[in-house]
Every structure is written in structure tokens, then in C-alpha cells.
């Protein structure tokens, strides 16, 4: 009995040993580039690239049409960063996507009509200023100032959402309201406001990260 089992095992091992390496020569799913300004293959109810592009583009154009911001003899100093942009929605969204794109596109388009203060780089600037003041490095070639630039206006805002779900069809819908506001940093008044609304419905279970 034991001998028969041993023979069977040896035969099986022999067969296994003879089997060639198998290559799965089937084309896989190729990585494709997609246009970030339009809907892609993976779509859900959250905020997606085309929404980020559309809303920041709309806000940029609207700010440049605002007389208080873009028609002053002395260009105002503006801070646009993530510090006061809150995500209170049920969507996972890195709000830096909104503020970074808005700042970059606005800075390129404004062409000197607005001056942007890089407050999120304040640490970097202070370190270099300290090195210059200590004499560790020379003064550079541009200029020396008493202090770094103070800002006139700063962007604040909020991402909010309202969810609904049809339990029969498992269709979920999400309404997003994204508000952008420019606040006067002396008076505390709001000199410009913009909002972007959208509602999406889908059955697909898409994960955002």
C-alpha cells in the first residue's frame, strides 16, 4: 500500500517537473492618460478632476472681473492657501487641489494686477532672512526690507454636501456646494464671493483617496 502511494507520488512529481513554465500572454489593461478637464472612465458622486478644474477656472475669471480686487492702482496683496478652506462634506477631497490651482492660474492670468503672498512658504523665507541678517550668507541681489509682505486679502471657503440614497436601486446622489470668499484682513469684510454647485447621482461604488 505504502509502495503504491510512493510510486503515485513519484509519477505526479515527474509530471509536475515536466510541465513547462506557462506565460499568460494576454494583453492586460493598459494605463491610459485621460483629459483632466472632462469626465474619465471612473466616475462617482464625489468631486473629481473636471470639477476642480471647472470651479477654479470660474472663480479665477470672476475674481479678475471684480473691481475691488483687480482694478486698483496699487495691486492688492492676496493670500490664497489652504489654511481657511474647510472640507465639511462627505467627499474626500484634498482642498489644496482647489486653492493651489486657483492661486497658480490666477497668478499667471493676473499678470501683475494682483500680488500673491506665499504665506505657506513663510518658514522658508524667515530662515533665509535669518541667515542673511546673521551674516552667514550675503544680502542677495534684489533688495532688503524691514519685514516680509503683509496681505490685504485672504481666501476662505468651505466645501459642504448633502447626500441622498434610493435604497431600492442603490442609487446615491450628492449635492456639493463649494464657497470661496475673499476677506479684507483689516476690516474683516468680504469683498468678493463665489460659489460652485453640482449634484451627481450614480450607482457605482467608487472610492476616492
Amino acid at each position: 500500500m505504502i509502495r503504491k502511494s510512493l510510486v503515485a507520488a513519484a509519477v505526479l512529481a515527474g509530471i509536475q517537473g515536466c510541465a513547462p513554465v506557462q506565460v499568460d500572454n494576454v494583453a492586460g489593461q493598459a494605463t491610459v492618460y485621460e483629459d483632466p478637464t472632462t469626465s474619465g472612465r471612473v466616475q462617482g458622486v464625489g468631486i473629481e478632476s473636471q470639477d476642480v478644474v471647472a470651479m477654479t477656472d470660474q472663480m479665477m475669471r470672476d475674481m479678475l472681473a471684480n473691481r475691488i480686487l483687480a482694478a486698483r492702482d496699487v495691486p492688492p496683496r492676496i493670500i490664497i492657501d489652504n489654511e481657511y478652506m474647510r472640507n465639511e462634506s462627505s467627499s474626500i477631497i484634498n482642498t489644496n487641489l482647489l486653492t493651489d490651482r486657483l492661486r497658480v492660474e490666477l497668478n499667471r492670468a493676473a499678470n501683475g494686477r494682483l500680488i500673491f503672498v506665499g504665506r505657506h512658504y513663510a518658514d522658508m523665507v524667515e530662515k533665509e532672512r535669518a541667515l542673511k541678517r546673521d551674516g552667514a550668507v550675503d544680502g542677495g541681489t534684489i533688495r532688503k526690507t524691514q519685514a516680509t509682505a503683509g496681505a490685504d486679502y485672504r481666501l476662505g471657503g468651505r466645501v459642504a454636501s448633502l447626500d441622498a440614497m434610493d435604497r431600492n436601486t442603490q442609487t446615491r446622489s450628492r449635492y456639493h456646494q463649494v464657497t470661496f470668499e475673499m476677506v479684507d484682513l483689516e476690516l474683516g469684510t468680504i469683498v468678493w464671493s463665489g460659489s460652485y454647485e453640482m449634484r451627481k447621482a450614480a450607482q457605482d461604488n467608487v472610492l476616492y483617496r
Partner: peptide
Amino acid sequence: DAKPVWQRLPVPANSSAVYREKSVG
């Protein structure tokens, strides 16, 4: 001017809607 970006616009049945877009320059 800035690169054009698609904006969504709902147009209700038998009705009309207005699309607006601003330049940056």
C-alpha cells in the same frame, strides 16, 4: 487668453438657459 474649460449648463425642456464666460485679459 486662458485655456478654455468646459462648464456645465442645464437647459430645461422647452425652455432656455444662459451661459456666460469671462476672459482674463
